[in-house]
Amino acid sequence: MATLRLVSGTPDEVLAALAGVLDGSGTPFAPLPDDAAGAARAEQAAAPDRPLEDGCAVVLTTSGSSGEPKGVLLSREALIASAQATHDRLGGPGQWLLPMKPYFVGGLQILTRSLVAGTTPVLLGETFTQSAAAMTGARRYTAMVPTQLTRYLETDADALRSFDAIIIGGASMPEPLRAKAAEAGVTAIPAYGMTETGSGCVYAGVPLDGTSILLDDEQRILIKGSTLFSGYRLRPELTAEVLKDGWFRTQDRGELVDRRLRVVGRVDDVVISGGVNVTLTTVQARLLEHPQVKDAVVLGVPDAEWGTRVVAFVVGEPAAIERNALRDWVSETLPRAWAPQDVIRLDALPMLASGKVDRQGLLEGVR
């Protein structure tokens, strides 16, 4: 069996290691985050001193936004298939700007697409506008998380408009943000996917070529295709639980609207609070419709009285996010029982390096 080496998670180191596994000259690797705690988690998940499963090119550590980080095994074939399918959907290969960390799948795939296309990726400099100006490709692409798009629409809208496509992943793209990007003339394409699917595999609700989706009786999203991971590092029981007959059983629920996939939330986003089923993502979406709410996340917290207490963490104008006012706002369109019992105002939602909200950190702060 092959051995696994650890590499620094800097763009140059990851690009060099990635080039080696894609052309067959290098050895499988696991990139380490640039913070000590993240590097320790990644090294533990990668287990470099243990024999490596066959066919693996890269081991990526999941962000751990809602649970224990896992080592995800990605093959050379899956990485290339994802890059090629992305270029086919976007209209052809191009040059990519890297505004995210390359030790997460979104950043890694920007580098993969660059290598497959034979183009030189541009790294994010002091400003997004300066970085965009450094690009020379006939077609120009980038990818980012919703939080970045929100910020750049305020400061770098002209630069955003210069890209042929901007893939938005890592978290769902709120409808107000989608509308704002469209109004600004920015081609922002919401993508659905995860580390286990080799990055985004569904663009604007439509699967990439080579990818199939299915909804089971619980509306759980199942995914099959050439970009799927091979399994979890040294976790055969967990691999067998989520990979069945070639289908990956995600933790997300969805629905098909005009033959397009709409992700409606995680399987565990429906909680029972006071005997009532509450869909947390629906409450969150309603809060984000408030004109003075800039960001929000809604979580269920174990509670002796309610079973699960619905807690909203909100960023916005202080007067607008007073508890009773927001409960009334939610109740205008949703059942009163869905209104959050607690509202916690924050200056900003805590984020992981992957661009996802640190849900575990928020939960630990209120338990």
Rank of each mutant, 00 (worst) to 15 (best):
R89S: 09
P48Y: 07
L60C: 04
T61V: 08
H87Y: 11
A37W: 09
P31Y: 09
P31N: 00
T61Y: 01
A57C: 03
M100L: 11
M100D: 04
E43N: 09
R41G: 09
P102N: 09
P69Q: 00
P33A: 06
A46H: 09
G67H: 01
P31M: 13
V59C: 03
P69T: 12
L73H: 01
R89M: 08
S65W: 00
S63C: 11
R41S: 14
C56P: 10
D49C: 06
P93I: 09
D54M: 03
P102G: 01
L32H: 09
F29V: 13
P99R: 00
D35Y: 09
A85I: 00
D88L: 13
P33R: 06
I80E: 15
P99C: 00
A83E: 05
A39W: 09
L79K: 07
L73C: 15
P102V: 08
M100P: 03
T61F: 02
W96R: 03
R41N: 14
K70L: 15
P102H: 05
R89N: 04
V58D: 01
G91T: 03
A30K: 04
D49Y: 04
M100T: 12
P93T: 05
A46L: 08
A45C: 15
R76V: 14
A83T: 06
P33N: 05
G91A: 06
V58R: 05
K70S: 15
R41Y: 11
L90Y: 09
L52N: 01
T27C: 12
P69A: 11
D88H: 09
A37S: 12
E77G: 11
A40S: 14
S63Q: 05
R89I: 04
E43I: 08
G64E: 03
R76W: 14
L97A: 08
R76M: 14
D34Q: 15
D35V: 04
T27R: 13
G64N: 05
V59D: 08
A78L: 01
D88F: 07
G38E: 02
E53G: 07
A39D: 11
A36E: 14
S25E: 02
